[in-house]
Simulated assay, not measured.
Amino acid sequence: MQATWLVGGIGLFFGFSALSAGQIHSAAHWVALWSVGGVGLLSFVRHAVFHRSDAVRMGWDLGKRNDFQLEVGFANLAWGLVAVIASFLGWGTTALGSLVLVFGIYMLQAAVLHLFESGRTRQRPRAGSKFVNLVFAVVLLWFAFAVLT
């Protein structure tokens, strides 16, 4: 999980640096490649390849394979691969910004779902992680709108 945050943070750091310098396409490229592509690929590995240890980390271990978790991993793989391909094939600022927007919407929905989950239990497992995911989603959405408008 920490590797995912690091990769996403690298994209946002250099993306916001480029954005503040007025380099819109470069900013979109950094965030799409690292914060969508890198995060998506790492999330695939975490959710699908290492699904059992990830389920234990999240407190969702069912004692068997959870196909829904694999499905989430495959969705992350799809976004991640498309973002990497779009970045290397030069699909343009609008395509890259749209990928960031789609991933931001997905991450916001996941973050809200996890926050509702916290509200249903007295224990607050992974509270810090849930907050980071919410912040990441909001920053991705803000960034997408800054690039696309």
Rank of each mutant, 00 (worst) to 15 (best):
L96D: 09
G8Y: 04
G73H: 02
L6P: 00
L41A: 10
T94K: 13
G80M: 12
S98V: 05
A83R: 11
A137L: 11
A110R: 04
G40I: 03
V139W: 03
L77D: 08
L108T: 13
L33I: 04
V39P: 02
S118W: 04
A144Q: 10
L140H: 14
G22V: 07
W142Y: 13
A95P: 00
V39W: 05
I24K: 15
A21W: 08
H51R: 14
V7P: 00
E117S: 14
T121K: 14
A78D: 07
R126T: 01
S53Q: 15
Q109T: 05
R122H: 04
F143E: 13
G104C: 06
L42A: 04
R122V: 07
L77Q: 09
A86M: 06
G9Q: 10
S35F: 01
V72R: 00
T94Y: 02
R57G: 00
L6R: 09
V84T: 08
W79K: 00
L70Y: 07
G8F: 03
L12Q: 15
G8Q: 08
Q23T: 02
M1I: 09
D67S: 04
L141S: 12
N133L: 10
G40F: 01
V84R: 08
S35A: 14
A83I: 04
M107C: 03
F131I: 13
Q69F: 00
V135N: 11
G63D: 14
F14L: 15
L81Q: 04
A137I: 02
G90C: 06
M107I: 00
L148Y: 02
E117T: 01
L81E: 07
G8L: 05
G73N: 10
G37R: 11
K130N: 11
